[in-house]
Design a binder for these strands. Structure first.
Lengths: 232, 232
DNA sequence: CGGCGAGTTGAACGTAATCAATTGTCGTGG
DNA sequence: CCACGACAATTGATTACGTTCAACTCGCCG
């Protein structure tokens, strides 16, 4: 029995495309657990690994010339991470929560994918989706007010986390634990920690949501939250 | 004789991957000229076309909920545009200058690509590169000052335009015509037209560059420009 | 109980947006 | 060729939003 037999994301991740060759593929990778805060890949480093997320959440981040961090993506179970067919990793990949990933050597992975067009097609689909998502986020960073950014972030994450939940559940969550702390939220939104805090407080004051503890969000008035988020 | 026989980008665009099947492929597409300002695809519209850029420059743009435009990409000859394997176009595609593109029906293109893994691989490579570029731009939008944004924009475009030039020439250009007007630059950088203008004036005042007319840029002190741009 | 880090709140500041006026450029027709 | 109008771009004055700096609160663990 392999870890894949009980893998939570086997039907959603990249490997779901494989039929009989799955056996072959899984022998190439291995599961790894990452404690919260551990960095799996470094920006600019020779890109040696790719991976599927099995459990947890990780962030992709880069630093601007003067050292400011910008988070350029957050990934969840069944998402793919790493940069195939390229020499260096374009960003850091760091665990936001304790996580489990299924890693492959990049060269081995590249070789396998090139021999399995179905899988390469799936990878292309994922990459196109990621690109759409990244470009949507550019609108947020380029054009939205702090209030809109925070609202959009909450709407987005409540939807993404819903897909992570056991089977079927797909309605956006009304109560969830943020995998990011305030500083990280600020780094996603291109704001400062103080501004994020103020906007969250304002939303709480207006009864749009509650913050029972610093990691938990309860959305009470999704309609209003979405109205603030506007862009979509 | 087909237009492809004299195509300027035949060795760089997606079709360069094809060997003997090239003949087959080119029969599926047709060249089109687009006057400056013409929109080829609309955001949200059913995605019917994909295309290669042969000549000119086009922008990809989306609107935030309250109608503000954000340019999420600029494409040049040999670049690929459109959203294969997806139902709707995620952004507008509009000619910045008079342009020539080589268009394909999306369904026909999708079918062809699925049968030609080499081509699909090339498309994946391009998409991965675009994703890297988009994420780099997120740092600019999230973390850079107006001055840094304008400087970064100029450094970037002078490099991109160099690759468009006839054969070989790859050093960044020190003198070039902007394919975008001030409003469009503002929409790329997430700034207002006034701020862009002020920053350009400041760079001129400091002797970093000259602006002989409103479309032309002459970089006099690239070192300094790059120092201001910092992030990279 | 004390100390520490994360988060919140407040006050002052600064950058870019906004509003407004002026200059510059280009195309058209006299 | 010049005059004019329309639009693009620049420049200036003011405002507003988010940042910065600083104080304070809260929860947690020794």
């Amino acid at each position: 029995m392999t870890p894949c037999d009980v893998c939570e994301v086997r039907d959603y991740a990249l490997c779901a495309t494989l039929g009989l060759e799955r056996e072959q593929f899984i022998r190439l990778g291995r599961q790894m657990t990452l404690p919260k805060g551990r960095t799996l890949m470094w920006e600019g480093q020779e890109s040696m690994l790719v991976a599927n997320v099995v459990e947890g959440a990780l962030m992709l981040s880069t630093c601007s010339g003067d050292g400011q961090e910008q988070i350029v993506g957050v990934v969840y179970p069944s998402d793919f991470i790493g940069r195939p067919f390229g020499s260096e990793s374009p960003h850091n990949v760091t665990a936001l929560t304790d996580s489990r990933v299924c890693v492959f050597s990049r060269s081995v992975f590249d070789g396998f994918v090139r021999k399995h067009p179905e899988m390469e097609h799936h990878l292309l689909q994922r990459t196109l989706d990621e690109l759409d998502r990244a470009r949507k986020w550019m609108v947020l960073l380029g054009r939205m007010s702090a209030e809109q950014r925070v609202a959009t972030f909450l709407v987005d994450i409540s939807r993404r986390l819903a897909h992570v939940k056991p089977e079927g559940e797909c309605a956006p969550l009304e109560r969830f634990a943020l995998p990011l702390d305030r500083q990280q939220i600020a780094n996603v939104l291109g704001l400062t920690i103080e501004t994020v805090s103020r906007q969250l407080s304002a939303l709480k004051r207006d009864g749009v949501l509650a913050l029972p503890d610093r990691r938990t969000v309860e959305i009470h008035d999704r309609k209003r939250l979405e109205a603030i988020a506007q862009a979509e």
